[in-house]
Write a protein that binds this DNA or RNA. Structure first.
Length: 211
DNA sequence: TAGTAGCT
DNA sequence: CAGC
């Protein structure tokens, strides 16, 4: 059982945004270099690509997936798929480091049963953004979302249950892990346009139990 | 509305 | 620039 919690990340402090929503500051800071290297490896098999929304617009963030299910969008709609539409291959397996990090972060945030089967990898170049949306293509909303920030900093928008609700603006830097679930599971959220900095990209890992 | 543009 |  110990090996399930082999990830040694510890939050330097936590910040509660709402019931069921917490930022674990620096939780993944130590493993950030290893996580970035894994992203590089995984995206050699399943390359980053800019997907198209059902409305026909190209998303500014490039995406890929690992795990048994991957989030995809095209003109048909949003969904989870077992195979990469770009290559026809199954998504690469989720590295143990990823799975352990996600599970331990969820545990720290009060979700002890979380086992991710999907990891969406996002790559934001300078100027890339993600508009306000809900994560609602998953089967089981009792399981939280775990979001890991790497590379360039971002301003995360954390809203309410309706698009028109006011948003909190949360600065996220490398190693921060945001977890939201329970009553906050369906809150609208997004990412403001990434500003130029020391690095070329912001990377984000979003872990979900999709199936 | 997992976009964007445009106006207040 | 935030908020329609």
């Amino acid at each position: 059982m110990d090996d399930l919690f082999a990830h040694k990340g510890t939050p330097r402090w936590t910040q509660t945004l709402a019931p069921g929503a917490v930022v674990l500051r620096g939780f993944a800071a130590e493993s950030a270099p290893a996580l970035m290297q894994m992203i590089d490896q995984l995206t050699r098999v399943a390359p980053f690509r800019q997907m198209t929304t059902p409305g026909g617009f190209v998303m500014s963030a490039a995406m890929s997936n690992c795990g048994s299910l991957g989030w995809v969008t095209d003109v048909q709609g949003y969904r989870y798929a077992r195979h990469d539409p770009l290559t026809g291959l199954p998504w690469p397996a989720m590295p143990l480091l990823f799975a352990q990090l996600a599970q331990q972060a969820a545990y720290e945030a009060g979700f002890p049963d979380f086992v991710a089967d999907a990891c969406l990898m996002n790559r934001y170049a300078v100027g890339s953004r993600m508009s306000l949306h809900q994560d609602k293509n998953e089967r089981d909303f009792s399981q939280p979302i775990v979001s890991v920030s790497l590379g360039l900093p971002a301003i995360f928008q954390f809203g309410g249950m309706q698009r028109s609700d006011a948003v909190q603006r949360i600065p996220l830097t490398q190693g921060d892990v945001l977890v939201w679930g329970g009553p906050s599971r369906l809150r609208f959220h997004g990412v403001q346009a990434i500003k130029a900095g020391t690095e070329d990209y912001r990377f984000n890992l979003t872990f979900r139990k999709a199936g």
